[in-house]
Amino acid sequence: MALMRYEPLNLLNQLQREVNHLFATNRLVDEETGHVLADWMPALDIKEEPGQFVIHADLPGVEIKDIEITLEKGTLALKGQRASETKQETEQYRRVERVRGTFLRRFSLPDVADADKVSAKCKDGVLEVVVPKREAAKPRRIAIES
Results as ranks from 00 to 15, higher is better:
Ala120Phe: 07
Tyr6His: 04
Val129Phe: 08
Lys138Cys: 00
Leu12Pro: 01
Thr75Phe: 10
Leu3Pro: 06
Gly34Gln: 10
Val130Gly: 01
Gln88Pro: 00
Asp116Phe: 04
His56Tyr: 06
Gln14Arg: 02
Glu18Trp: 15
Asp39Met: 02
Val62Trp: 03
Trp40Ser: 10
Asn20Val: 03
Ala137Thr: 00
Ala143Thr: 09
Val129Cys: 01
Met41Gly: 15
Gln81Ser: 06
Glu68Lys: 13
Val36Ser: 04
His56Glu: 15
Leu44Thr: 04
Glu145Gln: 10
Ala43Leu: 09
Gly34Thr: 13
Glu49Pro: 04
Gln88His: 09
Val118Phe: 05
Asn13Pro: 02
Arg94Glu: 13
Arg134Val: 03
Gln14Trp: 00
Glu85Arg: 14
Asn20Tyr: 00
Ala2Tyr: 12
Val99Cys: 06
Ala57Thr: 11
Pro110Tyr: 11
Phe107Ile: 08
Val62Asn: 04
Lys73Phe: 02
Phe23Cys: 09
Gln88Tyr: 08
Phe23Pro: 03
Leu44Ile: 03
Ile64Met: 06
Leu44Asp: 01
Ala120Lys: 14
His35Ser: 14
Asn20Ser: 12
Ala43Met: 11
Lys138Gly: 02
Ala137Arg: 05
Val129Asn: 02
Ile142Val: 10
Arg134Leu: 11
Ala24Arg: 11
Cys122Met: 14
Met1Trp: 05
Glu48Phe: 03
Asp39Phe: 02
Ala77Met: 08
Asn13Ala: 10
Leu44His: 15
Thr75Ala: 02
Leu59His: 05
Val96Arg: 05
Val54His: 04
Glu31Asn: 13
Asp39Asn: 14
Ile46Ser: 11
Asp116Leu: 01
Leu12Cys: 06
Val130Lys: 07
Pro139Trp: 00
Leu15Arg: 11
Leu22Asn: 09
Glu18Ala: 02
Met41Glu: 14
Gly74Trp: 00
Lys47Ser: 13
Lys138Ile: 10
Leu28Pro: 01
Glu85His: 05
Ala83Cys: 05
Leu22Ala: 15
Val62Thr: 06
Lys117Gly: 06
Leu104Tyr: 09
Lys123Gln: 13
Gly61Leu: 12
Asp39Lys: 00
Gly74Ile: 04
Glu85Ile: 09
Met4Lys: 06
Gln52His: 14
Val96Asn: 08
Asp30Arg: 12
Glu128Val: 12
Val99Arg: 09
Pro110Arg: 10
Ala38Val: 11
Leu127Pro: 01
Thr25Asn: 09
Glu85Gly: 00
Lys133Cys: 04
Thr75Ser: 07
Thr102Phe: 07
Leu59Arg: 02
Ile67Pro: 04
Met4Gly: 11
Val126Arg: 13
Glu31Arg: 06
Val99Pro: 08
Leu59Cys: 10
Met41Asp: 08
Gly125Ser: 00
Ile144Gly: 05
Arg105Asp: 15
Leu15Phe: 13
Val129Ala: 00
Ser146Lys: 03
Arg5Leu: 13
Asn13Ile: 10
Arg27Asn: 12
Glu145Gly: 05
Glu97Met: 01
Ala120Leu: 04
Glu49Ala: 11
Arg134Ala: 06
Glu97Val: 07
Arg95Tyr: 08
Glu18His: 14
Lys138Phe: 06
Met1Glu: 06
Glu135Ser: 10
Val62His: 05
Gly51Leu: 11
Arg5Ile: 13
Asp30Lys: 12
Tyr93Ile: 03
Gly125Ala: 00
Gly101Tyr: 04
Leu3Tyr: 12
Ile69Trp: 07
Thr102Ile: 14
Lys73Ala: 10
Arg94Leu: 12
